[in-house]
């Protein structure tokens, strides 16, 4: 059985300026709907009828232009968004690495954030305490451990976020742009973690704009554009196709 299976998945959002955020708007809309007009609600499909099966141990890259729905797909798989239609089934535990380094509380120290994040990701405090030295060393934050996160640079934050995730023992890793920041030596470390995951049979989904890396690392790649799954196949072939469509539209 597949580790991840997605059937006829659709996700739409209402265009923000029509969202009701105050009671007054809601009240006006309510009156409006009843009395003279229905509120216009424009639907934007971030994902449209996506079908997907991913087996255990596959390393799948996801590519596509900005705003194509890649991150939305990962967020749905991570359980953060609920789809409007379709079925999503995941077997096993999930470690989400979405928009790295943003899921921290600014006014708390790195140490406190490590404990909180680890707990949210399902790690008991005793285990976090044991892993703490490793996480700190991996993130190279040494004596900044008790500094508040708001004083961290974006690179440090990302290193820390990745370090926490790297020490999670999950079945499925959902990674969104994990290579965006971080110097070259840190990127090497990240790559080593990805190889370790792959070699130990973990299932990995990696969203990246670095198509070279996708072709290098992944066995399989998905090309998503405007909410639709355009291609699904061997990584090098899909990356090739993506480059062709890019140059064709240019």
């Amino acid at each position: 059985m597949a580790q991840i299976s997605v059937q006829n998945l659709s996700k739409s959002f209402l265009v923000p300026h029509q969202r009701r955020t105050t009671l007054k708007d809601s009240f006006v809309d309510f009156l409006g709907a009843g009395l003279w007009r229905r509120p216009v609600q424009e639907q934007f499909f971030a994902l449209n009828d996506v079908n997907l099966e991913i087996g255990a141990g596959e390393f799948v890259g996801i590519i596509g232009p900005n705003g194509s729905g890649k991150s939305t797909l990962l967020k749905i798989l991570a359980g953060i968004y609920r789809p409007n239609a379709g079925q999503v089934n995941l077997r096993g535990s999930v470690a989400p690495l979405l928009e790295l380094g943003i899921g921290f509380q600014q006014d708390l120290s790195a140490r406190d954030n490590i404990y909180i994040n680890a707990a949210l990701l399902g790690l008991p405090a005793s285990q976090t305490r044991r892993l703490l030295p490793e996480i700190v060393e991996f993130a190279e934050i040494g004596h900044f451990l008790d500094l508040k996160i708001k004083n961290y640079s974006s690179g440090m934050r990302q290193r820390l976020a990745f370090a926490i995730a790297a020490h999670l023992d999950a079945d499925i890793y959902l990674c969104d742009e994990v290579f965006a920041v971080g110097d070259e030596s840190f990127q090497q470390k990240c790559l080593a973690v990805f190889r370790r995951w792959r070699d130990s049979g973990k299932t990995i989904l990696l969203v990246s704009h670095n198509t070279g890396q996708i072709a290098d690392l992944c066995d399989r790649a998905l090309l998503i554009d405007r909410g639709q799954l355009l291609a699904d196949g061997p990584a090098t072939a899909v990356v090739e196709l993506y480059h062709q469509t890019l140059s064709a539209t240019r």
Binding site: G79, I80, P96, L98, Q105
Partner: peptide, 11 residues
Amino acid sequence: GKRELITKIYF
């Protein structure tokens, strides 16, 4: 107040 956590991790 915990927007940053909610939009990144499901718990």
